[in-house]
Amino acid sequence: MPSHATPTITPGRTWVLLILGGIVTVFVVIVAIYVVNLPRPANSPGTDAGARPAPTESPAPEPVASPTPVVAPGTPQPTSCAEIYSPAMKQAFGDLVLNPQWTTEPGADVGDGADDPELVGVITASPHLTCHWASPTGPSDSGVDTSVVWLSPEQTTAVTDRLAELGYGCYEELSGLRCLTESDSGGALVGESHFLRGEVWLATRYTNAGPDGYTHDIVNTLWAGS
């Protein structure tokens, strides 16, 4: 059989191979470090398994402020029922009291100062202060409900037109417009008194009650000195 000679590597060649291998290793390490430190996109996951982008919170909605009614300077703005009557009127109701506890309970049998649904709708949709003269023990066949209502010019026209449409007797009085109606309903004397001046509407409905000069007293108290 022919014999084959075993290849030999000279010492010089060995050093060349070692140097080349070292260079390749260093190059691979440098490339790996560069790849690891590349910047990631803002929404890319992290390197940990299962990592997720941090959720962003939506800003809380801004609260919507309730509109504040704008009234002309000098317009009466009572904040309590005690402010709309003179001391004498507060003493004139006899057994009826102002805003007894039961009138503030949910579902209480009290009115807003008008019977017509359109007028009641304007009262409830507008800034208003409603006051009740009633029996301290509960609903009875006597009482007075009055609302002080702040209106826009358009609402004032709508209320005036509606009062005329309903056939209420209207006339000028105390620098404003006064409208009245009264009837006998099943043996009970029921009536309404409406007074409009500027941006204020005094809406009153009464049953078997109401001292003489009631509306005049409110007008003179609210517009005292004017």
Score class of each variant (00 low, 15 high):
125 A>S: 12
57 E>I: 15
159 V>S: 01
201 W>H: 04
210 G>Q: 04
129 L>N: 10
22 G>A: 15
143 G>L: 04
147 S>A: 03
185 S>E: 15
165 E>F: 11
87 P>N: 00
103 T>V: 05
96 L>P: 02
214 Y>V: 01
30 I>D: 10
29 V>M: 11
150 W>I: 08
94 G>C: 05
91 Q>D: 14
41 P>G: 03
170 C>W: 03
135 S>D: 15
213 G>C: 02
83 E>R: 00
70 V>M: 05
28 V>T: 15
33 I>F: 15
176 G>Y: 13
203 A>M: 00
200 V>T: 08
28 V>W: 10
144 V>M: 09
146 T>G: 09
41 P>K: 00
214 Y>T: 03
179 C>K: 09
168 Y>F: 11
139 P>S: 10
171 Y>C: 01
21 G>H: 06
109 D>L: 13
71 V>A: 10
126 S>M: 09
84 I>A: 00
107 G>L: 06
81 C>I: 11
205 R>S: 02
164 A>T: 12
157 T>K: 04
112 D>S: 12
105 E>A: 14
12 G>Y: 13
128 H>L: 11
67 P>V: 10
3 S>Q: 09
75 T>D: 04
80 S>I: 08
204 T>G: 00
7 P>D: 08
224 A>G: 15
43 N>L: 07
49 A>C: 06
89 M>P: 06
101 Q>V: 00
88 A>R: 03
77 Q>P: 00
51 A>L: 03
137 T>F: 03
96 L>S: 05
34 Y>N: 07
50 G>K: 01
16 V>M: 10
108 A>W: 04
50 G>T: 00
1 M>A: 09
223 W>P: 01
94 G>R: 00
89 M>F: 06
91 Q>H: 11
4 H>W: 05
42 A>V: 15
212 D>C: 03
13 R>G: 08
170 C>I: 02
58 S>K: 14
53 P>G: 08
132 H>Q: 14
90 K>Q: 13
131 C>W: 05
35 V>Y: 03
44 S>Q: 14
98 L>F: 02
136 P>I: 06
3 S>G: 06
208 N>M: 09
110 V>P: 03
91 Q>C: 08
55 P>G: 07
50 G>P: 01
184 D>R: 11
192 E>P: 00
47 T>I: 14
118 E>H: 01
33 I>A: 12
40 R>Y: 01
63 P>F: 12
4 H>Q: 05
59 P>R: 11
221 T>V: 03
200 V>F: 09
225 G>Y: 13
10 T>R: 03
97 V>W: 02
57 E>N: 12
16 V>F: 15
85 Y>P: 03
67 P>S: 09
37 N>V: 11
18 L>R: 14
148 V>S: 00
123 I>R: 02
80 S>F: 06
4 H>K: 07
157 T>R: 07
11 P>K: 10
50 G>V: 01
224 A>K: 14
64 V>R: 10
113 G>E: 05
172 E>R: 15
225 G>F: 13
101 Q>E: 09
55 P>H: 05
142 S>P: 05
171 Y>L: 12
220 N>V: 04
160 T>G: 07
200 V>Y: 05
77 Q>V: 13
16 V>G: 14
44 S>M: 11
131 C>G: 06
182 E>Q: 13
109 D>E: 11
127 P>D: 14
4 H>A: 06
135 S>W: 01
